[in-house]
Design a protein around this nucleic acid. Structure first.
Lengths: 346, 346
DNA sequence: CTGAAAGCGCTAACAG
DNA sequence: CTGTTAGCGCTTTCAG
């Protein structure tokens, strides 16, 4: 039993020191370890002491210090999740999915925003790993070599989301962007279109965009159509950007008769721009999207697009991590597939 | 210097024990505390030792254990953020804003999803506080008394977002939902509409929805219009739900000549349903939204709505916390305002 | 500019 | 079912 007046050094700094397990133990008339057990293995403690401990906890307003617990046990209930942007519907859904997967087990999501840059991603991964997460969920497979290395040596389950990498760091859940783009492009070509444009983000920074572009090209080859580099456009996400992209494509000496947008937002902007210009969709120009976001069914005409399992990617990713933490078998790669949704725009 | 063969107890469990500051120190030929200083106050260490330490860190792939650091220093670089749903554009923007505010300081967001339930929120807050965040961002002001109490006794900066509570836990950033709804309703009434409907989520669980309903009623009084309880509808978020809500309102013995939707999503669904039924907007019925989400400018007609500072709420909220942590003065309540955006739907 | 000692709050490993 | 002892990896305090 420590004297009430032992070295005042530290406690002074925080004013009143935080309420500790020790305080609860004292009040309940037991030792600290019994409190710990009551919290984690209630069945290994007698009903009477458990009641006393619960009362003491409530009375003192005790909140367990998870930093101390994590340090002592070398495990936390934190999972780090790294996405390019929170504001893209696609990633928000995945976050929600992961969040739901962790809910019952009381795990929390520690969020990181890479802004789409592998370099920033590396910094973020390093920082987040410092919190010793029990697992890592990370968007895409386009990482620096260093990121791969530190993720591997972290020795925790890692899930790459939204893609099916040939060489996953650990596990992966997603769909084939290559095949999805290929499927869509073949669909467009099947409608008799010859000059197909393509709009996406700069592929250098985004493996999924890259895959889609490759799938697009593969389909052109399949269908014996020519690839026109001048009909490929890279821009930022957004409806307004879609409008501008369409304007730019129409300014080409030979404009396209179809445009494959690697995101519904651009397609929506293009449809709106066509309405403004009196261009008929799909008669004059076919326009397709990607992701099947809510807006895709709301434009007139509705957007023909690829539906991807946005929520499920996070949900299954989270489940994979939980399974591994429980020592259950977990697939290395889960292909959740995609689906072409035919509406009126193509 | 500890012997290489001291008690194998613990280290065995993790196979190879994680790389510690001690390891770095040994390799660099200094003591652990010097490594700590090199990391946090590089200028208090000679250039030569700093270089040696940096080299050792790189070579070993050392990742500081933030749990240990946090425990020892009683401070972390974590801020907890609790929102109802990640997938609502409004909250996703706020998360992005907060994330951006913390970026330079290297703080991370620890996310919590309340699903809109104050009870779940309490559980989540308790759990997140266990990680000893340096601050807390929480959506709304509709908390249980226990939530308020534990948040207060946590003795960290707390920001309630999206509303201007009369009795904030600590700080708040947002706008007046009451005034925003009142403004919109007066605008509608000013267009000569008499029977105005109102669509929102169940107000019991959502203080902001409650405020909007009160503002709606206040405006009706201002304009000497009657309040028709049968024209008030509560439903879930979503475009499809908006369609259904319109259908329900049109089935009333005396249908409304205008509907104020407390979210753009419903308004979009209603506009789409009107198009389907051949009802003219705004001639036959006026429809207004709330939030000014991207979709509001894309429907035909465009949605007259209230623009709220979604991103800024998170950004300013984050800034408030950072200021407090740096001992700088920070406002208790920041009113970011709102703006009526007039488009064609009313 | 550098170091030694002590301790943050908790849990693993033995006891009993 | 409960307790004792030791230590997780780091930072604070106090010394030099």
């Amino acid at each position: 039993m420590s004297e009430p007046d032992d070295p005042p050094s530290r406690r002074a700094r925080l004013g009143a020191r935080q309420i500790s397990m020790e305080d609860v133990a004292r009040k309940a008339g037991v030792s600290a370890i019994t409190v710990s057990r009551a919290l984690h293995h209630p069945d290994r403690v007698s009903g009477k002491t458990r009641a006393a401990i619960d009362a003491a906890i409530a009375e003192l307003g005790y909140v367990p210090n998870l930093l101390a617990g994590g340090l002592a046990s070398a495990t936390t209930r934190i999972v780090s999740m790294i996405v390019p942007y929170v504001t893209h519907g696609v990633f928000a859904d995945a976050i929600q999915g992961a969040s739901d997967a962790f809910e019952d087990a009381g795990f929390s999501v520690l969020l990181g925003n890479s802004g789409g840059s592998p370099q920033r991603e590396e910094t973020i991964v390093r920082n987040l790993l410092g919190h010793r997460p029990a697992g890592v969920l990370i968007q895409g497979a386009n990482h620096t070599e260093t990121t791969r290395r530190i993720l591997q040596s972290a020795a925790v389950p890692v899930v790459e989301m939204g893609t099916l990498p040939p060489r996953p760091i650990d596990m992966a859940v997603g769909y084939s962007n290559h095949e999805a783009a290929r499927t869509m492009t073949r669909f467009i070509a099947g409608r008799g279109r010859k000059r197909i444009g393509f709009v996406s983000v700069p592929p250098a920074e985004n493996d999924r965009a890259n895959e889609r572009l490759r799938g697009f090209k593969a389909a052109l080859e399949d269908m014996e159509l020519e690839f026109h580099p001048e009909l490929v456009l890279h821009t930022n996400y957004g409806i307004a950007e879609g409008r501008a992209a369409l304007a730019a494509l129409l300014d080409r000496p030979e404009p396209p008769d179809a445009v494959f947008c690697a995101s519904d937002l651009w397609a929506a902007g293009m449809i709106s721009e066509c309405a403004r210009r009196g261009i008929r969709v799909p008669e004059d120009i076919a326009i397709t999207g990607f992701n099947d976001q809510e807006i895709a069914s709301e434009t007139v005409p509705g957007i023909t697009t690829i539906r991807v399992p946005r929520y499920q990617i996070g949900r299954v990713g989270g489940d994979l991590i939980m399974r591994r933490l429980q020592g259950l078998p977990a697939d290395k790669i889960v292909d959740l597939g995609f689906k072409l949704i035919e509406r009126e725009s193509a």
